[in-house]
Design a protein around this nucleic acid. Structure first.
Lengths: 193, 193
DNA sequence: GGATATTACTTGCTCACGCAATTATCTGTC
DNA sequence: GACAGATAATTGCGTGAGCAAGTAATATCC
């Protein structure tokens, strides 16, 4: 049985390619990042997210969304970073259930050194594969997918909150800028200044 | 310090978006697949790879590459599938070190039911986000990235293996279909083989 | 022909992640 | 003001993944 090969599964193929690219890039960049002693790819992901936030602090929940981690996963990740001295926890005065993860001085200076190096690496790799025009095109397409996924996040049930319509731009997430997670982006401004 | 926000990091942003898309899609499709008992996203990935191979059998090493898994990771994954009765191990007569993973009858019939359903789901999601033209474009771009990563896998020297051409039919793998891993396979942030 | 290196896979160990349950706090209703 | 329900984060537990080391068979070299 041939299970519909050929061109009948363009979408399946596309998704497969996307997964393959993600894991390949993670490997390539992870290897580079791990040259810094205590800087796994995951750690870098969390740290750059903080570094690129106005006051270098984010609520745990928000950080979890940006890093595509579950709440518990983020708790452990931050635990490790706190142990490593790169991040500090701070309780939220307005809502005492909440906690901020804040970049420490050590974290800031580590990132000041690591980010440009990593960015150069990424630039060089991407530059070898795609022309600037292609890069721009790919970014647009991926952003469409990402925006859709943000909206469809919780569950595609008809019974829940009105925030999952496919075209909305206000899905309860951080600011207008809404950028990529894992390795970068530019969180515009804070939701609740 | 602001760590070069703004438009200076287009490539970094792009890679971040790609990671975010991958993990979002993995979540969405994984949820659906897990409705089948004993069909994790990872399992599906291995199985579809086998199902789409001419004789429904692949050497462990090859399968590891296609699924973006480490050799040990694949060994365990196949162990689970063997326990579940979906795959069988077969020793290679020409090279007695080697082993084939072969789709079992149960595996074949499971996939015969699961693949079309999954493909419909993927089609429907992708169709909601991208026009056919955009899908085609995205696929082309991702394939470029994937092909580069295949070459850069072991060591990033410019003269890589003649592995597979853009339409991949020449990498010793399933002929005309030869596509990406299909669902899932995120090896976290660790370097592979 | 026999020692050495290489390849193909497996096993031991450790660790990161997600799910489910838990604790503490906030919100809403009466 | 007190109780029910929702929300933020953490912890217990199980699982899947990678690295390093181990085993077996093959390839290479003298």
């Amino acid at each position: 049985m041939e299970l519909s090969l050929d061109g009948g599964d363009e979408q399946l193929t596309m998704v497969g390619l996307l997964f393959e690219c993600a894991s390949g890039l993670r490997r390539v960049f992870g290897e580079q990042l791990d040259r810094d002693p205590a800087l796994s790819g995951q750690a870098f992901d969390v740290l750059i997210r903080l570094a690129r936030t106005p006051e270098e602090r984010l609520r745990m929940t928000e950080l979890a969304v940006w890093t595509s981690l579950s709440p518990s996963g983020l708790t452990r990740a931050v635990d490790r970073l706190v142990d490593a001295g790169l991040v500090e926890r701070e309780t939220c005065p307005e809502d005492r259930r909440g906690a901020f993860a804040v970049l420490s001085d050590a974290g800031r200076s580590l990132m000041a050194e690591a980010v440009p190096r990593h960015a150069d690496h990424v630039r060089s790799v991407v530059g070898q594969v795609l022309t600037p025009a292609e890069q721009a095109e790919l970014q647009i397409l991926l952003r469409k997918v990402r925006d859709y996924l943000r909206g469809a996040s919780p569950d595609a049930s008809p019974d829940d909150s009105p925030d999952d319509s496919p075209d909305d731009s206000a899905d309860g997430l951080p600011g207008p800028c809404a950028e990529a997670s894992t390795i970068l982006s530019c969180p515009g401004e804070d939701p609740a200044p």
